[in-house]
Write a protein that binds this DNA or RNA. Sequence first.
DNA 1: CAATAATCGAGACGGTACGTCGCGTCTTGGG
DNA 2: CCCAAGACGCGACGTACCGTCTCGATTATTG
Lengths: 206, 206, 206, 206
Amino acid sequence: MTQTSDGPVTKLTVRPPGRPRSERADRAIIEATVDLLAEEGGVAGVSIEAVAARAAVGKTTIYRRWPNKEALIIDALAALKEPFPVPVGDSVRDDLVAIARAFMTDKSDKKRLDCYWSIMSGAERYPELIARFNREVIEPRRDVIRRVLRRGIESGELRADLDVEVTLWLIMGAVAHRARAWGAGPVPDDFPGKVIDALLAGIGTN
Amino acid sequence: MTQTSDGPVTKLTVRPPGRPRSERADRAIIEATVDLLAEEGGVAGVSIEAVAARAAVGKTTIYRRWPNKEALIIDALAALKEPFPVPVGDSVRDDLVAIARAFMTDKSDKKRLDCYWSIMSGAERYPELIARFNREVIEPRRDVIRRVLRRGIESGELRADLDVEVTLWLIMGAVAHRARAWGAGPVPDDFPGKVIDALLAGIGTN
Amino acid sequence: MTQTSDGPVTKLTVRPPGRPRSERADRAIIEATVDLLAEEGGVAGVSIEAVAARAAVGKTTIYRRWPNKEALIIDALAALKEPFPVPVGDSVRDDLVAIARAFMTDKSDKKRLDCYWSIMSGAERYPELIARFNREVIEPRRDVIRRVLRRGIESGELRADLDVEVTLWLIMGAVAHRARAWGAGPVPDDFPGKVIDALLAGIGTN
Amino acid sequence: MTQTSDGPVTKLTVRPPGRPRSERADRAIIEATVDLLAEEGGVAGVSIEAVAARAAVGKTTIYRRWPNKEALIIDALAALKEPFPVPVGDSVRDDLVAIARAFMTDKSDKKRLDCYWSIMSGAERYPELIARFNREVIEPRRDVIRRVLRRGIESGELRADLDVEVTLWLIMGAVAHRARAWGAGPVPDDFPGKVIDALLAGIGTN
DNA sequence: CAATAATCGAGACGGTACGTCGCGTCTTGGG
DNA sequence: CCCAAGACGCGACGTACCGTCTCGATTATTG
């Protein structure tokens, strides 16, 4: 820190010497990575070489920023992450349906959904990736459901003795598994509603 | 079935000419495949090269039997597959809990469960694999639940207007997702019971 | 040595197990190397990648045979080496002229001459290369001149007190330097004769 | 020639605006280049990167002065170039021997000789370099020999029908080739004398 | 003295080649 | 005909330099 400044210091980080890293390259690399992740359908389909080619960037430029493919994809993930609003509708039931529907079809574009599952596929080869993905993308969304459930308990719409975590697994599990559609065809439009209603009413006779 | 033929039985199956394939190799390959699938935690971790090395077998010996990795793993899967009995207990509730518990922890060893999830992870890189896996391993187990649910409807233990398929997704989803335990730690012993009870009673206040 | 043979052993080397190395690849690689050496005009112009591409061969196949570029070029050199006949003409003078002319223009194709100088260029970056080149290609040719000179001394055509090595440097030096034609244009046809004649007669007045 | 101007002399050269180029950098770069040329033993061993590192200078500082490596080395060469006096001794023979010896061992240090051959090695990868080197360093020295030869012809010490150019190739070739000493060890002290004497007397028996 | 302008070192840029690894396939001699 | 061994062509890996291109900082001269 070479400044002898007086007054409130505002510059907390000094720019390092030399040519600064190109933000254009940053963006191009992340975009190329996300595109390949969605198109190739899996972490394995994303090669640094392909990313470099598509981003019109030298491999060096990628390796200067990320030590390996996993790290690159983790950061590309961040580009997918975006705040998921807590819905506050008239009823908890409608909110849960809305969340389920959003999660299954993702209101944003197809690319994002493709990436989600591409990442889940690669899974265990890239444990750090899956961990961060859960922490930064999945868990926030689980938390949204958690809040709605707690609101429901307080408002009396849901049972007071509800086990929130168990309910979370029921909702997330049904939604995520069905969305994956392992050979079961596209998700019917009324599926989210049916799931939540079944869950609310229970399947037992009293 | 290679028979050693005794007595007057006419030869129904002719042994092909040349050296017969080594059954020792067959077993070693399948075992190595299953081990790798469980250990490496993913289809990608299973390379023909690695299987051959672990089975102490030439790569040719593998490729003579299976056209590709996918086919090999499918057959290795069969080694894991075993009949899943339809439980007929005193109550449908107990049966469902038993099924859920069995599915999550699997009666047999850890290896089997690891393989299940390794395969699910591989996902769309190996569509044929996942398809056959669903058909031969998953669907039979879903069918067991289906039967129990139908029995519950008939016996009056479950609601008459129950949507069986939706219920299936709820049970299977919760169970499978939780078993995968994406960072959530080991499955508590009472989890299956809690899930089924929550589902039976419903989470809404009538 | 696993053979229990009787009689005179002829098989001195047993073929190693596995698929034998492709002689076609051997040839293609050497040829591609020589071509590139001649065309690109320098060791630096020969890249393993380019050799592999031109020979329609994987890089692995090259690296399996040679540890690095230097080693490859050394062996490619051997393909250029071919016996240089000791001329036995009517006079030592004519023989020397013939040798000089052959060395400058090389009776074989242009490619060989290009390679010679390409190798000499790379020189110090590849000391082992230049050493072997001298030993296997240059020195044999020097030896041819040496023999002719000795014959001349015996026959009385050359001075008895001739220093053979010094004479060698004179002949080889003039020839090689002029052939290199550092900006001096193509070698005139009568140059070899002029050099040898000047050398024979001496430049001094008695 | 940057003059510091004194007295009434009108300014003939105007110092350009802005920060003047560092003469320290100039010197450091040239010195580093010469050192690398001698040490690495070849044009290829001289990389701008290496020069910049050794001169403790930014690469920009080099590229601002010279458009490419070739140009840099050409200028570095100039630092080596120094007038080569035409010897006028008692006899042409002694003069030739002196020149030959000087050329082989070079009065100045080892570094200079190393550079000479490093440059000659680089050859056709750097045609402009070799051309200028010949023009500015080699040819002047050839010219010195040329003058001595002409003087010898006039004085009757050398044959009147002498082909000066051919003789030049003989002397320069022997000297240069032997100095390069491709594996032939250090140059014996009496080599120059022997070469010139052999050339003067001729190797033939009249 | 402030403005101007070319310099400086540092280091990122796109690119090419390196030598290595693992893939799935092919091709041997021997059992 | 099977088996092991291992070479084949291929493609991606991560590294090292290359020559070029910005940067902020420095250092002279000029208005």
